[in-house]
């Protein structure tokens, strides 16, 4: 079966974002961008399923600016077979899910594996929305994925522990951090990735309206905590905490 892996180009997770002075958003000019960490885990999982003989082809998809090509090349260098870039800026999860649904209809994958959330908008919606539009089961926050015939068993990280669900294929799986450790692309594979096929499309090709439903009125710094004080000893600390009334 084919596996579809949506990936997103986001600000590198090590960077602290700078907020524009006019409060219109986060300054992304000249900032290092990378593949969303959860998506790297998704690509890795798809490759492992191919290595196990479960998957036959891996298609990486990104919906974003022209530069998202770099993100797709990274996925290809890791081991994806081909890529689709849908060029559009600032697309909300619902529109992304609609575009992915159109791609799913075209490609007929047996499984979609994607990150549980993007570290820029922190929405945690797209996978669930795709599953809804597609009318298929969803295995969100996966820490283990096992394909067995026409089903997939997904162990999910939930608040009280680990939950396992079984979904008939095709299905949507979203990855959590502990699913796997993504591999690095080797230099020869990075070179090879340059010649792998990458198709470029637009949302209009799929008949999807990407007009935003949510308007961002303002982006601001979070309230700054008042600088605390350093204490010299444990005794000092205990005294301060008692004075503050947070410990008895």
């Amino acid at each position: 079966m084919k596996i579809l892996v949506p990936v997103k180009r986001v600000i590198d997770y090590n960077l602290k974002p700078r907020i524009k002075a006019d409060g219109s958003g986060v300054d992304l000019a000249n900032v290092k961008m990378s593949m969303n960490p959860f998506d790297e885990i998704a690509v890795e999982e798809a490759i492992r399923l191919k290595e196990k003989g479960v998957a036959t082809e891996i298609i990486a998809v990104s919906i974003g600016p022209a530069k998202a090509q770099e993100t797709l090349r990274t996925a290809l260098a890791m081991g994806a077979d081909r890529a689709i870039l849908v060029e559009a800026e600032d697309v909300e999860p619902l529109a992304v899910a609609k575009i992915l649904k159109a791609i799913v209809d075209e490609e007929q994958p047996g499984l979609v594996v994607m990150g549980k959330q993007a570290i820029d908008d922190d929405s945690n919606q797209t996978g669930q929305m795709l599953a809804a539009l597609w009318g298929r089961g969803q295995g969100t926050f996966a820490s283990n994925v096992a394909v067995d015939g026409d089903h997939v068993s997904v162990t999910r990280e939930v608040d009280g522990g680990l939950e396992t669900v079984k979904l008939p294929l095709p299905a949507v799986v979203t990855t959590d951090l502990r699913l796997n450790e993504p591999r690095y692309a080797s230099l020869p594979n990075i070179m090879k990735a340059k010649s792998k096929p990458l198709a470029t499309k637009t949302p209009a090709d799929y008949g999807v309206d990407v007009a935003q439903r949510i308007t961002t009125l303002k982006v601001a710094e979070p309230p700054v905590r008042q600088k605390g004080e350093m204490v010299a000893s444990v005794d000092d600390l205990v005294a301060k905490l008692k004075a503050k009334g947070v410990v008895a």
């Binding site: 974002p17 908008d121 303002k218 710094e221």
Partner: peptide
């Protein structure tokens, strides 16, 4: 958004 490094007001 951005791991709590920014607070967005949205409509």
């Amino acid at each position: 958004i951005y791991a709590g490094n920014a607070i967005a007001t949205v409509e």
